[in-house]
Design a protein around this nucleic acid. Sequence first.
RNA 1: GCGGACAUGGCGUAAUCGGUAGCCGCGCCAGACUUAGGAUCUGGUUCCGCGAGGAGUGGGGGUUCGAGUCCCCCUGUCCGCACCA
Length: 924
Amino acid sequence: MEYNYNEIESRWQKAWREQGVYRTEEVEGRPHYYVLDMFPYPSGAGLHVGHPLGYIASDIYSRYKRLRGYNVLHPMGYDAYGLPAEQYAIQTGQHPAITTEQNIARYREQLDKIGFSFDWDREVRTCDPQYYKWTQWTFIQLFNHYYDEEQRKARPISELVSRLEGTEEWQRMTEGERQDYLMGYRLAYLADIPVNWCAELGTVLANDEVVGGLSVRGGHPVERKLMRQWSLRITAYAQRLVDGLEQVDWTDSLKEIQRNWIGRSEGAAVWFPVDDSQKFEIFTTRPDTIFGVTFMVLCPEHEMISQITTLEHREEVEQYVAWAKNRSERERQAEVKKVSGVFTGAYAINPLTEEKIPIWVSEYVLAGYGTGAIMAVPAHDSRDFAFARHFGLPIRQVVAPEKDAVSDPATWEESLDSKTGYSVNSGFVSGMKVKDAMAAVIDKIEEMGIGHRTVNYRLRDAIFSRQRYWGEPFPVYYKEGRPQMLPEECLPLELPEVGDFKPTATGEPPLGHAKVWAWDEQNRRVVETEKIDNKTVFPLELSTMPGFAGSSGYYLRYMDPRNDEAYFSKEAVGYWQNVDLYVGGAEHGTGHLIYARFWNKFLFDIGLAVKDEPFQKLINQGMIQGRSNFVYRSKQDNNLYISKGLIKNMADVTPIHVDINIVDNDVLDLERFKTWRPEFAEARFELEEGRYVCGWEIEKMSKSMFNVQNPDDLVARYGADTLRLYEMFLGPVEQAKPWDTGGIEGVHRFLKKLWKLYDYYLNNQNTQSNQNADLKVLHQTIKKITDDIERFSFNTSVSTFMICCNTLTDLRCASPEVLKPLLVLLAPFAPHIAEELWHRMGETTSVCTARWPECDEQYLVEDTVKYPVQFNGKMRFTLDLPAAATQQEAVEAVLAAPESAKWLGGKEPKKVIFVPKKIINIVC
RNA sequence: GCGGACAUGGCGUAAUCGGUAGCCGCGCCAGACUUAGGAUCUGGUUCCGCGAGGAGUGGGGGUUCGAGUCCCCCUGUCCGCACCA
């Protein structure tokens, strides 16, 4: 029988679907396990071979856990809202709902062909009203809660109100003032804040969506702009987000990325008086250097500037502030090393020395961090140092590496930023170690009542509005200019149809194009009127939520995806708890993975989620890069293409990307090249040994480089099982690697050999094999495969299968006791072939529901001749020798062992290698 | 600049606890079967050397009976952050 993978695979995929083998229900009494993939954005390009890498790994683990008797939740869905889907829709001129639907269908078709064990009954789509109802619901809860610093958790805003009600200040406020005041506490709040405005995309972006002053999506310039926006007070959770990292099983590098992003730093807040009536607060991590302050710097946005600037400096300062505000993010970041600033004419008083210190304004002080004002200590901060040098401000040394190592800062080439050493020229802390001086200065400041110990975070609140169409509408309307939440019973607030969904350059959201988009408060519904009277009919919020809104809680919804009464039932979350294993790219480290942790912690605080952390273990799959091929066109002759080996000088040729589908093993298919594109129809070639050899390079996988490997093509050519095994065989899942189909033949060959092995058994059932040897191979394989899967080393698993198959073939294995359990081991990796052979061996139930074989230790311990049985003509023994055994004793013990006689056949060993304590190696 | 990770044959990689370095696969070489081979099978393949033998895990040092693995320094590559006081 031929191994007809295409027929086998489609037949079993159909059967599994019809039998619903992957449907999951909450069953008491069985251990449960939740394996989750980061759900994909259904973009227009379809899946490429990089996408399934993580899905295959998680699928192997899910299937393994099932075979081990676990009740496994392994769902899949689509992150269908957000910028990429909308950009694609704009490019193709179609409505995003239609293109999204098409893209999802394409993704699903591609995913189905690879044979994943997803429970599709639990599919969620973030753009489905039944799903985003709960995204909107969570937003309302965020709005109605604040973060209680004492309890370190979210509490209803009503608790804050009842605490405030006793105060005189509260009683004096009007209702509007009270609302404005509470807005400063709500976890979802509306405020005028500096945002990343991207004119090209027509929307604001979160910090993680901007890199180097350009939008991650599309690479468009981003500018800073003050806009009234919804934000999530994620900063309230900064400390818990740092602390929670201790509890999860993630890589150290990803934890470190998150720690850096949150950017916790300890220090002090200190008030510096300007005169009797004015003062401003600064933040510093180096309170010990307060005696070295020679100037102060405010950020250009600082509200004190206009009040303190003296008349003679006013014009200059105003010019500077205006200039700084008009600079784009990119300009500012590109010129970080350029020093700029202006003197205000005002002076602050150093509270410890009573010195008068000039106050400057410079954009090197950022508005968003600390208080937007600093005390500058040029001797011990490189940025202050550069500023002082540029403007000729004094530099005073207050820290020295050794107690007497004081020198003239005028001779320094750089500042002394190190926190080791001793304080000098520093009043009452002189002579102390830096660490002690820090504590002493803070104590003094607290005692004087002019400051306190504090912690600052680099993390900013997450801007939550997008001036876009394709996203969740806010369940918000405006009454007297103040936001009101829709009643929860009225959710979901569905996204309306609009004629024109394109973004606008002015920041006017596309939802403004909807004629019917208003809220009738009394009748509790969206109304079809253009007349907003602000008495019974009120305007709705026109922004939509960002991409991360829908993806922040989807893993919880999978637990109970069709629930219409609640986000998810208490029973479902009580059963599944949280995600045991999460697989996805590390590029989400500072975005999704932070937001989702925040979202989960909030739901935990309000009693919905039952675990503080959403993702217990996390594996980051590496990115798969593309391998591009090039042809080389002669610069003299536009129709002449020179084979790579014949090029004398690369300057004489132009490399041109060529579609990898018309290249095989770097050899170009000349006829297909000529018909590939019209400009190559007249091509002539300079061949080496009759072939045209292409050049290659590792690049990002992209359509424009013609290096996209589509999984469908490989499935058609080799089968899904080969693709699955090969993606695992490429190397460790976590590692980034270029896609290279060069080795896929080897994996495919293995499956063909495996097929033959079973074919041999099925045709020769009466023959005998050395069952003891067969069992030894089986149990060694069970042990190795089980260990490999547990530590996510799937590439070595594939090698183990290959060795096992070769050895059993050599042994002419005819033992069903060996061949059947082997199929169970193989089922997570190559489910289709395993299922087919399983049935051919007479089984009637699915191999997906079999029991994982247990390793019988007796086949392992007796001797430890390792794989392969013939190990390059060597044998290895592991003996329990006394630690002090001499080589002579060890060799005698080995030669006395029955295995030795078998292997050496009475002859003397060629060589004996002795390793103290454990190992003896004998070369036969 | 700060933080993190990594570095092994021609290539992808393996070596799980500090104990044979190079498993498995690709590629390559030789052979078998074949009208044929881009099918299949067998053997070989770290480097130098005809050989005995020697060298060898980016470079240098250290710990150890023993180091790819642990420690220090350097070089290179990749990733994250980047005027965060």
